[in-house]
Design a binder for these strands. Sequence first.
DNA 1: GATGAATGAGCGTTCATTCAT
DNA 2: AATGAATGAACGCTCATTCAT
Lengths: 194, 194, 194, 194
Amino acid sequence: MVRQSSNLQPKILRNARAMLLAEGYRGLSMRKLANGVGCTATSIYLYFKNKDELIHSLIDEGIGHLYDRLRTAAQQAKGAQERVDGLCRAYLDFGLENPEYYEIMFQLHPTHMTRYPAEKYRRARQNLQLFTEALATRANRSDGPTTEDHLRANTIWSNLHGAVSLLLAGRVDVRLDKEAYLEAVIKDSAGGVA
Amino acid sequence: MVRQSSNLQPKILRNARAMLLAEGYRGLSMRKLANGVGCTATSIYLYFKNKDELIHSLIDEGIGHLYDRLRTAAQQAKGAQERVDGLCRAYLDFGLENPEYYEIMFQLHPTHMTRYPAEKYRRARQNLQLFTEALATRANRSDGPTTEDHLRANTIWSNLHGAVSLLLAGRVDVRLDKEAYLEAVIKDSAGGVA
Amino acid sequence: MVRQSSNLQPKILRNARAMLLAEGYRGLSMRKLANGVGCTATSIYLYFKNKDELIHSLIDEGIGHLYDRLRTAAQQAKGAQERVDGLCRAYLDFGLENPEYYEIMFQLHPTHMTRYPAEKYRRARQNLQLFTEALATRANRSDGPTTEDHLRANTIWSNLHGAVSLLLAGRVDVRLDKEAYLEAVIKDSAGGVA
Amino acid sequence: MVRQSSNLQPKILRNARAMLLAEGYRGLSMRKLANGVGCTATSIYLYFKNKDELIHSLIDEGIGHLYDRLRTAAQQAKGAQERVDGLCRAYLDFGLENPEYYEIMFQLHPTHMTRYPAEKYRRARQNLQLFTEALATRANRSDGPTTEDHLRANTIWSNLHGAVSLLLAGRVDVRLDKEAYLEAVIKDSAGGVA
DNA sequence: GATGAATGAGCGTTCATTCAT
DNA sequence: AATGAATGAACGCTCATTCAT
């Protein structure tokens, strides 16, 4: 009955993000979402083909944000080691500050929804690439990253992911000094030349 | 005339685990579970108060299995460093071999189900304790683990968790040599004093 | 809230039949049906796997009723020609008296629902067989029906079907004497030895 | 710069017909139709008041086409008996070649849509009239058709309709020689004075 | 110890249609 | 002449759960 001309798309995404965080994929229902947005469930289908596409859009957004964050960190770093450290810190910050994005990007089991298009995952791999390149630079390799760098980038990523995901899940011992913990994770991962 | 008492409980748990593996938490429905077990949905409620309690039982089982695995690894190790390495390896193996347990133990967002009783999580912390103690032993601390050991145990754990969880989610680059990757993760985590 | 122990199945079928007649396949909704029956939509699924299976059950019933009717007619007939005439009359009567069955058995376009199992259509063919046999008998063929009889049975059937279906659809000119019309159809179809 | 006025109406009708053939009345949705036409659902309402009126237009078209076909057949016939035969053949051909028209003209239960205006049905009766007249001519009645002719026209029609409708529904035994079957139906119906 | 019958709530989705622009 | 945004109602169906037996 109320015919607002306000573009709903961003509103829908915003609400979906919050809802996803609060209740998980399973708890995100088109109707509850619509209710939160202030429109009918039908209207959501004007902007997204279906629930999965809506989620995919959120993943897209998340990947984009994370990439921006990492790229900025890489650019602002003064030295090679600082760049690696900075990337780690940026990754952790992003994850901890954007749990809603983080969950759908990395926690959502693919079987829980229509597979996120492989083509888009490739875009996600750009993020990893930033780490790989920073490692190559640090090692003074002028002819690009080696397999070794690639492997290293992956372990760094998985270390960081482990930390973020346990923290978000509230699984890390609260008596632990969080900052020290994060520092330790970074040192483990980006740890100097050894 | 064999009148088996046919206690359903283990059958239910076994099926639930298989189902969880095949279709994820979201795909586990009481009706389908009952169907697999060969009883009615109602019967399940004789053994478990509700779906969440059933899941909790599975978590209990999982924690127990993991603990057994880790303790065995700790006992069989010949030296201090070997003990830490062995614990890491055992953790990774457990996670990768029991994705159904791993998901509900560590991936399931607490908000997705009735909170797992805090009291039980404490039991889960025994697992972490094994790491802490191994680290203390390695450092020749006779008067028990320090805060430092505790912190270290946590980063080790989160590193391992990161690896398992990305592997299970199929998020790790398939072109990567998996064994080399796992080795690197362990070295990162348990890597001696260097 | 009301837990009646009255078996719903026949009630559901009865209501579905009426509803199908009144509003067609498209107009038969599980919810409206449940409402008419006095239960919830969910309950219907206790008795029928889904909407199509419910319809199939109705078709089964219809085929059975028609067969009973035809067989009875065939048995009661005194002579060979009378048997053919009787079968025709019985078919017309059945169709006109049971429009709800008739529609779902013969009018429902197969594309409108999951295909009725081929195996069951075979059962439906028994009905046609009664005609074929009556024709063979009338022609004094002791060694069973010929292709000719089979063809004839089919044209008889289609003539009768045409009449029933146009009458049920209200497409036949109301100024026409209905009884005379039906007589003419039968004569066309079962028309003597000529 | 060809600025076609691109009147949508014929395009809509054409698509609706195709869709009706492919998916039946039930499968014809305004949205999907619009999609096929290349316009929005809203646009269709510029040309047709609603879905039923759209269907009615198609029925109009169908009646017109059938009439053309029958009239042509009647005109081309050389003799009186040939005229009756030709009409039958034309009717069968039309039905079998235009299942999409045939369905909405004769199969669609009136209750499934807003009643087709009675006034228009009268136009449809012209088709029957062609049969009646041909019969009168064949019987050498110079003073117009009798009630007998009218009755006969109706049985012919219903015989033909029975055949078309069973064939379209795929209900006729596939082992039957189709051409022989059709011939037999015509002979039944138009079969001379014998 | 187990079942059969039933429920109420909710799911994702599609429908024909309206209306301001 | 056409659209884009929105709606309310309905759809088939599945869910976890209850309760009398």
